[in-house]
Amino acid sequence: MTQARNPPASPNPASAKTTLPSDGYTGRSRRARAEPMLVRPLRDDRYVVETDHGTYVVDLDGRTCTCPDHSIRGSRCKHLRRVAIEVTEGRVPPPGKRTSACAVCGRRTFVAVTEIGPQLCERHEVAVGDLVRDRETGRRLIVTRVTNRRADEATTDDGTTIAAYETNGDYGDHEPVIEAVYLDSVRGLDGSVDASELKRYGFPASRLRRLGSERVRGAQASLDAFAGA
């Protein structure tokens, strides 16, 4: 088992009621921030809001809350407002998302509830057609597929796991495998990608460094078919 360059970390959710800055706010908006609350997402896309006076369930999409202020008066209560604030500020996942940890840096990230396997944060995620650089060789590649398979589970044609290769010894076994092709081997005469030349290689995610927002001309159309192969 190789040692991860950046070991994964737990999402470390808050476990105590907190307040938020409330200067400049009035009424329910101020109370939504100034009063101590703990917001916890439920599996059905609703949220539990714990306060000093009671515990309530908020449905953000349905714009409902079980508190008397909303149930009786029909008001957009402080609990609804607080959940909306925490979702907007990235404190809790929005409906349809769950909390995960980036397999490279351990940073908390939100992913679709249906996602499985190791995940990546915005800083480390890549997409089909992205231009990346191999940290070991310095060569540039084009991403052809982003998998949810771990480097110690995904295998090459000869049955060897991606993690078992000596050049991958400094990268995490737990990281998702990114498949890519070397740029200098797939360039067409006009500078676009020639799909007929594709030969894919698998890498632990942190071995590939994304080159800003660069994408290769012609890559998306040529590589889309490979993304689900």
Rank of each mutant, 00 (worst) to 15 (best):
T156I: 07
E35K: 06
G228Q: 12
R73M: 09
C121Y: 06
R210T: 08
S100L: 07
A225L: 13
K199M: 12
T114N: 08
A229F: 13
P36Q: 06
V111T: 07
R149H: 11
D59R: 03
T137Q: 08
E89F: 10
G228A: 11
D61Q: 13
N168A: 12
R63N: 12
E86D: 15
G138R: 10
T160H: 04
I162G: 02
A219V: 04
T51L: 06
E86M: 15
T55E: 15
P176G: 04
D158W: 10
G90W: 06
A103V: 05
T18V: 12
G106P: 02
S213Q: 12
E136L: 10
T160W: 03
R133H: 00
S222T: 13
G188I: 03
R135K: 14
E197F: 04
A154M: 11
T26H: 14
R63I: 12
V49D: 03
R33P: 10
S10M: 09
D134W: 01
E179T: 07
R81E: 15
M1T: 11
E86N: 07
R210F: 02
G74C: 09
R210Q: 13
H174W: 11
V113P: 00
R73L: 14
S206D: 08
R139I: 00
Q220A: 12
R43L: 12
L189R: 13
S10W: 06
S75K: 08
Y171N: 01
A16V: 13
A195Q: 09
T156F: 10
A112F: 12
R5A: 14
Q119L: 00
R81L: 15
Y25T: 10
A164V: 02
G129F: 04
Y182G: 05
A103Y: 03
I72R: 12
V181I: 14
G54K: 11
Y165T: 04
T99R: 06
D170I: 05
A221D: 15
R28Q: 14
E89G: 00
R43P: 00
G54N: 13
H70P: 00
P68A: 05
C67P: 06
F110A: 06
R76L: 13
R98F: 03
V143H: 06
R209W: 04
T161C: 08
T160K: 07
L223G: 01
L60N: 09
L223C: 04
R215H: 15
L211M: 15
G159A: 10
E197H: 09
L211V: 15
Y47P: 01
R43S: 10
R107G: 11
C105M: 10
C67A: 07
D61G: 07
E122M: 07
D224K: 14
A14N: 13
G96M: 11
V83E: 02
R63M: 14
H174A: 14
P13G: 09
V146R: 10
A34P: 00
R123Y: 11
R200K: 10
E35Y: 08
Q119M: 05
P36G: 02
V57P: 04
T161R: 05
A4D: 10
D134C: 05
R123V: 13
A164R: 08
A221V: 13
D170S: 14
A151F: 01
T161A: 04
Q119C: 05
R33S: 11
A221P: 00
E179G: 03
V104G: 01
G117R: 02
D69G: 00
D224A: 15
R73G: 06
T155K: 07
D52I: 01
A32Y: 03
R200E: 15
R107W: 00
G202V: 01
R187N: 08
A32K: 01
M1W: 09
E175W: 04
P95C: 02
